Simulated assay, not measured.
Amino acid sequence: MPQWLIDFGNWLLDILKTMANTILTMAKDAMLFIFEQMMILITFILDGMGTLFSGLDITSYMSGIPSGTAWVLSQIGIGQALSMIIAALTIRFFLQLIPFVRLGS
């Protein structure tokens, strides 16, 4: 077999390998771009949800409670407890919106 034909075959094989690697790299970059855009959207949504919980501070509603009772409630951490309960209920509500996650409730 002539050497020029072998060289041409090797050159063509190198070209095909380079094209395959390029296409795989482009596909990987496209998937990473989609993943990055989804993460940016999720970050935007979660940043917006922070304002939803700004009104959950129970201490602003304690002005009508006597000072002794308010002190006891603040010492036992009723504000943090109510915030945790509301956050848990919110997470449970959002999990109910996802199909196939409604296992226990």
Rank of each mutant, 00 (worst) to 15 (best):
I91M: 11
L82T: 05
S54N: 09
I40L: 08
S54A: 14
A87N: 13
F93H: 10
G64K: 05
D57L: 06
A30L: 12
Q80C: 09
F33T: 15
I42K: 03
M49C: 10
G68C: 04
L56Y: 03
I40M: 10
S63D: 12
F33K: 15
M84E: 15
D29N: 13
M39C: 07
G77Y: 03
M84P: 00
F33H: 08
M39E: 15
L82P: 01
E36R: 10
G50I: 14
A87L: 09
L95K: 12
G79D: 08
I91P: 02
S74A: 13
G77F: 00
F93E: 14
I76F: 01
A87I: 10
S60G: 07
I65S: 01
I78Q: 05
V72A: 06
I85R: 03
L41W: 10
Q80T: 05
A81V: 07
E36V: 10
L41H: 08
L82W: 08
I91L: 13
A30N: 08
T90G: 12
Y61L: 14
A70Y: 01
T90R: 09
F53P: 01
I85G: 02
S83E: 07
Q37I: 09
T43W: 07
A70P: 01
Q75T: 02
I42R: 04
Y61D: 08
I76P: 01
I58N: 15
M38S: 06
W71Y: 05
G68S: 06
I76S: 00
L46F: 08
G48H: 11
I42C: 01
I58K: 11
E36S: 13
S63I: 03
I65E: 00
Q37T: 13
M62E: 08
F44N: 03
F53G: 08
F93Y: 13
I76W: 00
L41T: 11
L95I: 12
S63G: 07
F93M: 15
S67A: 07
L89F: 06
F44I: 14
G55R: 12
G68Y: 00
S83R: 10
T51K: 12
S74K: 09
F44D: 15
S67K: 00
L56T: 04
F33N: 12
I45S: 06
A81Y: 07
T51D: 15
Q80G: 07
I34S: 09
V72N: 00
F53C: 06
L41G: 04
F35A: 14
I91G: 09
